[in-house]
Amino acid sequence: MERSTAGRLAPIVPVAVAIFVFGTIYGASQAGVTPPGRTVASSALVFSGAAQFTAAGLLAAGAGAGVVVGTVAVLNLRHLLLGAVLRQRLEATPRQRAALALCLIDETAGLALADRQEPLRTYVLAGVACYLAWVGGTAIGVVGGQVVGDPQLAEAVFPVLFVGLAAAAIRGRGDAARAVGAALVTVAAVALLPGLGNLAPIVVAVALASVGRRT
């Protein structure tokens, strides 16, 4: 039986609401750091919470543009996995796939893969809803952040967000051990090898991700 648009939107709306909330946090964290128009433009052009929070966190820690782009590029390698899985399910021409790629985030891929009847339609609906939520949330956050304006709170936002993102990415004991190990080794590396600086997270994470049994 074919699902109605309303039925298809039901699982999308809570996801879009959550993305809106995180968009406001991103926008607020950039108040006083990046000009408002540029912050909103970054969300419109990049449309990736993980990439943008990572970039903002590294910039706040004093990283250069090369390290920021390099770290985000490594983080984005997971798109290769998502895309490879998803493309088996999306019936579209190469040109259409290039356009669909704009909306490839963990959430839209998950929603599309969960719809066995019309994954393409769900993917497009979810993509539009999540994109609008992220950009709209960023714009609201930029305005709200300028009202609140607590620099130390902004300093605390990034590590806490990364704690949450790490927790959400953990699928078992191996991941948990690697996450705890990465945090400890990064602190030790920054303390003992200051020259490694902001490259430490990427070096440590890739090294630890290489360890473990085949899945």
């Binding site: 966190g57 983080l75 704690v163 699928r171 945090a183 990064t186 602190v187 630890l208």
Partner: peptide, 17 residues
Amino acid sequence: LLERLPAPLFAALAALP
């Protein structure tokens, strides 16, 4: 490696600052 990367990368980024 790609499946294992996010958790340690985010944890390392949390520890950096």
